[in-house]
């Protein structure tokens, strides 16, 4: 347990002393800032918008979070590629493997370290809608639900990215593979719109579908459980993969 936290702390430190994390945060913030501004202008110019949406939190939150998932989908694999693929190539993974740490400690440690980064990104995103508090009243519960969904989604991306990262020793392959896997789960949403049991099942498995409820402010434990299961399955697969590599 303490080893796991040490690994997590070390991973977080390594992420934040590298320029990659700061670049990612800066780009993320710049793009989402522009989107946020555009949404705000559009909302202000459209006289009808107050009638069509239930408050500004609905409109802004929906658009901003929706766009954020797309950007994160592309960014998270860039962060997870370092976790195992790059460490394996540089040899530093051996440090953890030779230490008295279990594979569960190692995988969870890496995951938690990346989650620290996730929360930093979410905190920065949260600032944008909360800024509106200066001029108007917001449905805070709704914004919080959206942010929780975003955090769960990002953690799910991270878990899937870690698994792909554990498969290879080439960071670029890990990034491309992670991106492909996430996009695959994304596309299930499209297939899910087909009728029939297969379509329904795919629609249920799709990563982003469960985010829709949270974005609308509906906190359903089924959706949260879906994400937790998704995270658990991919972290477990990562452990299995590392174990099979060891012997």
């Amino acid at each position: 347990m303490t080893i796991m936290l040490s690994i997590a702390r070390n991973e977080a430190r390594r992420i934040f002393v590298s320029p990659l994390a700061w670049t990612v945060l800066a780009v993320l913030q710049a793009i989402l800032g522009i989107v946020f501004l555009l949404l705000l202008i559009e909302y202000a110019q459209d006289a009808d918008s107050e009638r069509r949406y239930t408050g500004v939190a609905d409109y802004i939150g929906n658009g901003l979070y929706g766009f954020a998932t797309l950007v994160l989908l592309m960014i998270v694999p860039l962060l997870t590629m370092r976790a195992f693929a790059e460490d394996r190539r540089s040899g530093s993974l051996q440090l953890l493997l030779a230490a008295p740490a279990s594979l569960v400690d190692i995988v969870l440690g890496k995951f938690l370290g990346l989650t620290v980064f996730t929360f930093a990104a979410i905190a920065l995103i949260a600032v944008m809608p909360l800024m509106l508090l200066v001029g108007t009243e917001l449905d805070l519960g709704r914004i919080a639900a959206g942010l929780l969904g975003l955090a769960l989604l990002m953690m799910a991306f991270t878990a899937a990215g870690l698994f792909v990262s554990a498969l290879t020793r080439e960071p670029t392959i890990a990034a491309v593979g992670g991106f492909g896997l996430l996009l695959g789960f994304w596309l299930m949403q499209v297939l899910g719109s087909q009728s029939g049991p297969v379509g329904e099942m795919l629609g249920y498995l799709a990563l982003t579908g469960h985010f829709e409820n949270l974005k609308r402010g509906v906190f359903s434990s089924a959706d949260v459980a879906y994400y937790l299961l998704f995270i658990g399955v991919f972290l477990w697969l990562t452990v299995l993969r590392l174990d099979s590599e060891r012997g």
Partner: peptide
């Protein structure tokens, strides 16, 4: 190990 297991950013 053959390749020292270091973190160059630390």
């Amino acid at each position: 190990p053959e390749q020292p297991p270091l973190y160059p950013e630390l």
